[in-house]
Nucleic acid binder design. Sequence first.
DNA 1: TTCTAATCGAGACGGTACGTCCCGTCTTGCC
DNA 2: GGCAAGACGGGACGTACCGTCTCGATTAGAA
Lengths: 193, 193, 193, 193
Amino acid sequence: VLQDAVTDAIALAFFEELAAVGYGRLSIEAVAKRAGSGKAAVYRRWPSKRVMAVDLITKAAVDTVGVPDTGSLRGDLHLFLTTTAEGFLHPLASRIIPDVLAAAVREPTLAEGLRHSIADVRRKHVTELLQRGMERGELPEDLHVGLALDFLIGPLYWRLMVDDYPPEPNYFDELTGMLLAAFRARPAGPRRP
Amino acid sequence: VLQDAVTDAIALAFFEELAAVGYGRLSIEAVAKRAGSGKAAVYRRWPSKRVMAVDLITKAAVDTVGVPDTGSLRGDLHLFLTTTAEGFLHPLASRIIPDVLAAAVREPTLAEGLRHSIADVRRKHVTELLQRGMERGELPEDLHVGLALDFLIGPLYWRLMVDDYPPEPNYFDELTGMLLAAFRARPAGPRRP
Amino acid sequence: VLQDAVTDAIALAFFEELAAVGYGRLSIEAVAKRAGSGKAAVYRRWPSKRVMAVDLITKAAVDTVGVPDTGSLRGDLHLFLTTTAEGFLHPLASRIIPDVLAAAVREPTLAEGLRHSIADVRRKHVTELLQRGMERGELPEDLHVGLALDFLIGPLYWRLMVDDYPPEPNYFDELTGMLLAAFRARPAGPRRP
Amino acid sequence: VLQDAVTDAIALAFFEELAAVGYGRLSIEAVAKRAGSGKAAVYRRWPSKRVMAVDLITKAAVDTVGVPDTGSLRGDLHLFLTTTAEGFLHPLASRIIPDVLAAAVREPTLAEGLRHSIADVRRKHVTELLQRGMERGELPEDLHVGLALDFLIGPLYWRLMVDDYPPEPNYFDELTGMLLAAFRARPAGPRRP
DNA sequence: TTCTAATCGAGACGGTACGTCCCGTCTTGCC
DNA sequence: GGCAAGACGGGACGTACCGTCTCGATTAGAA
């Protein structure tokens, strides 16, 4: 019977090591040393680094998806953005996320796992958020939802994770405002007269 | 006197290797083997993998920044987006970019190099693009330019590089439309009555 | 816990490699490959080629020192010479000995080890051999023992190892005879009247 | 036209390098650096380290063979021994000789060269020395000359080069005495009654 | 409580890849 | 055209780990 305390120590060590050296340079040996366990204890649980990564990352990811419902679209958006930003700025997460995304390019199994356990769930939740806005008349019925999903997360991700530029105090208010403007307008097309 | 042919072969091999295994697992030895040269030929040019990466990546990046000027804001946006997307979808680039961004988190030197040789240049060009739009009256004078920059690139990056979802034929038209809507609206602030 | 089988395999491989390429070109890597082990297995046992050589050579050398006692001086000499020659003509030893002696010139540690574990022991044994001859009246009391030691081994070494000239059938008889003549004569000095 | 100054500098550097690191580790590059020349200057003269070694060593060796003729056997022996010892104790030679002998084991070409240019010449000279002794009646007519040659050089070589034990002041007198005793006795055979 | 079987840490194993160093060949300018 | 200087492809060096496998010591759950 595998001991839970050891399993937890290894899982924690995995994420710390992932943040420290990245997926490419992460080795089972380093994880075991950081966890204070033997290498065999790790291999008894997962057959390879790849399987271990997919298992631990997807397992950890399901806990992070929030479902804001404040009663107003503006409130939902604002809460979603600040919550998401909080996740992005977490010391461990901010180092792990770009690395895992880069690893996913080369690891179809990992990409699939992330898509299923994170992307799809998030998409579903955010779609509901927008749906509620439509039902409340805060958004046009013909909003291009797929495009809106990219607008909800894209600028924020770019700002925090790619540009690595810390947000000013009223950043989220302004971001929310511009998103609302983008969503409320008539559907894209030739310029209105 | 270092031979240019060898330098070029090594540079090409570096990018191929970077796309193949990622920054973390990239080794000078593999680059040299791929270039058909000895390892010493590489070390004669760059003292370490880090320095080599910063030099080659930033050197290669300056060539990629375009400056669209079609006469209309919509045209400029559309061209910018399709051009940028083309870069993102390039077989080598699509594997390299996420990896380099992840590496930059752990390599301040690389991050700084990228910021100086790519991000700043891009920002300057896109700001001019928006400025022309304002001068033509296509955009409000009080547009939040900093936020607009994130909108211009963020959703596209998320869609192509993170979500890894290929664009439909009219994707760029719709994206342009939603961006125009976001930019033309009154500045963000408390909900209008 | 280091495994004896591996240690033995490495020791054998060391001597084979020493005979094949000599001390100067002997590399740990080649020894490991010949032993069918990894390099780490070697370095786990000895920190460097020099230490390894001193340890293995001196350890192996102590086994080779014989102590002839046949009852007569002539018999002892003859046995000592043939036994020694046998050692010199051993396929591995004949290639190793000159090489190790040459290496000892540049490696004081090795020279010291050889002196302590081989030369001193050999000197002690041969001195006893001569002592027994004196007690039996077969040698003059005032024999210059130090000089005699060089005579016992010097011509044989020169013939077999330097001149590399194979001994004829009665070579050892003649060599013994000339040695007895040298030892039995009056001590060196001005020519006798 | 190859410049003699460069050739001489390379030859000197070769022997210094040989004394410093031994034949096995001697490299053309190190010789060239020590000579202050380019590597090509060396390769323009000899095609390989082996050929260079054979050429330079045999060329240098012919100068070292002396021919003592003092009028008496004891004088000739004494002079031969002291002269030979002087050569053995030369700072460069004492490091080079054991190394070259060891290398000759693995380099038949070198061994052959040494035999032809040194050993045979020395043997011829020393044989003449003994012959003169026989003609003067100082040695028995049936002296085993081949064995005597080994006695003349063997104990000295062993003492100086193998045992590495510096000779006492009267060492050469005593050595001469014991050699004379060995040579003057009746030929080897069953013990005399 | 005693026995037994599995997990634990530790680390030796064969092996691979690293960056460094240096080999002998070949190229480049100076003289 | 010989020279020094040094870049070239190549390969061996000792180191550092890799993942596998082998140890006793420890620990849990069945007897």
